[in-house]
Simulated scan of single mutants.
Amino acid sequence: MAALKEVFQKYGADYETTMSRFMGSEQIYLKILAMLPRDENLQKLDLALQAGDYPAAFDAAHTLKGMAGNLGLTPLYQAVCATVEPLRARAPGEDYAVLFQSVKEEFKRAAGLVELVKEVG
């Protein structure tokens, strides 16, 4: 499916490496990617940050990081990494609201990949 490869590369992800994780099956990949918008970790991260519960925020961000990495969603992965590391270090004074906004924007872009593939394909 050339459409997925094209959309994926425009998004900024490594198509070949990601597809190797999914045994070269774009259908399996798209099925799993379609579950992304239902994942609750973005909301958990938001609520934990608002409550100042940094251990819970770290857990949610770390889960998002793993998911983004496994799905090859490089821009989302990078945004989440920028949030995970300060949370891991319990960095005081970090502007988590700004970091979360970046994660939220990249999550939305990543979740939209399925629709983009449908439009192009």
Results as ranks from 00 to 15, higher is better:
13 A>T: 09
78 Q>T: 03
58 F>D: 00
81 C>M: 08
20 S>E: 12
116 L>V: 00
55 P>W: 04
27 Q>Y: 05
76 L>K: 09
67 M>P: 00
39 D>K: 07
54 Y>I: 08
60 A>D: 05
115 E>P: 01
70 N>P: 11
13 A>E: 07
84 V>H: 05
114 V>S: 05
80 V>T: 09
75 P>L: 13
45 L>N: 05
39 D>L: 07
66 G>W: 02
27 Q>M: 03
65 K>D: 03
92 P>F: 03
98 V>I: 12
95 D>E: 14
44 K>N: 12
86 P>H: 05
104 K>G: 00
14 D>F: 09
93 G>N: 01
69 G>L: 01
90 R>F: 03
92 P>Y: 09
14 D>R: 11
43 Q>A: 09
58 F>Q: 02
19 M>G: 08
38 R>K: 15
29 Y>P: 11
92 P>A: 15
121 G>Q: 12
43 Q>Y: 01
117 V>C: 06
106 E>Q: 15
73 L>F: 13
76 L>W: 06
80 V>H: 04
60 A>N: 05
39 D>C: 11
44 K>F: 02
22 F>S: 06
104 K>V: 05
63 T>N: 02
39 D>N: 13
83 T>M: 14
53 D>P: 02
33 L>Y: 10
120 V>L: 10
36 L>Q: 12
42 L>A: 07
67 M>D: 01
61 A>L: 03
104 K>P: 00
112 G>K: 07
13 A>C: 15
120 V>E: 10
34 A>I: 10
119 E>M: 15
57 A>K: 02
62 H>R: 04
33 L>M: 11
63 T>I: 13
121 G>M: 08
35 M>S: 13
81 C>R: 08
73 L>P: 11
61 A>T: 03
71 L>Y: 06
86 P>Y: 14
106 E>A: 13
19 M>H: 06
84 V>Y: 04
119 E>S: 08
119 E>F: 13
31 K>G: 11
102 S>L: 08
75 P>Y: 10
20 S>R: 07
51 A>V: 13
71 L>F: 13
57 A>V: 02
51 A>E: 10
91 A>R: 12
83 T>S: 12
57 A>S: 09
22 F>M: 05
33 L>S: 04
81 C>E: 15
87 L>N: 00
15 Y>T: 06
69 G>E: 12
79 A>P: 00
100 F>Y: 15
71 L>C: 04
52 G>R: 09
106 E>G: 02
77 Y>F: 15
55 P>Y: 01
103 V>G: 00
91 A>Q: 07
29 Y>D: 11
50 Q>A: 08
64 L>G: 02
83 T>Y: 04
56 A>I: 10
50 Q>W: 00
91 A>L: 13
24 G>R: 10
16 E>I: 06
53 D>F: 10
77 Y>E: 08
92 P>M: 03
108 K>I: 04
63 T>W: 00
66 G>E: 07
27 Q>C: 01
72 G>W: 14
36 L>G: 08
89 A>F: 05
62 H>N: 03
37 P>V: 14
77 Y>H: 06
72 G>S: 14
52 G>C: 11
104 K>M: 04
28 I>P: 00
77 Y>G: 02
78 Q>E: 13
96 Y>H: 09
53 D>Y: 02
74 T>A: 10
118 K>A: 14
